[in-house]
């Protein structure tokens, strides 16, 4: 199904957020996620079902002021 990942259209074959992250190459990366602008905590990823058209944001630690 088609979803948007960090603003880019992507095709994924799985429905759980946890599996989608693995498929998208995040593996064990230190990331935090939001789906449709709402935070999804790491422990909740396996129970989170993605729908076509969902907007997924994946972020990581970065420099800041």
């Amino acid at each position: 199904m088609k979803i948007t990942v960090n603003g880019e259209p992507r095709e994924i074959s799985t429905t759980s957020l946890e599996d989608a992250l693995r498929e998208l190459g995040y593996g064990e990366a230190k990331v935090a996620t939001a789906v449709n602008e709402a935070f999804v905590a790491a422990p909740a990823r396996s129970g989170m079902t993605l729908e076509p058209g969902d907007r997924l944001e994946v972020v990581t630690p970065r420099q800041g002021g």
């Binding site: 990366a29 944001e57 972020v59 990581t60 630690p61 970065r62 420099q63 800041g64």
Partner: peptide, 19 residues
């Protein structure tokens, strides 16, 4: 130290290095 969060593409490890 102040820090931020920003998008990361799959397969990258920029965040881990900075952390």
């Amino acid at each position: 130290a102040t820090v931020s969060v920003r998008r990361e593409a799959g397969g990258e490890s920029t965040g881990a290095g900075f952390w």
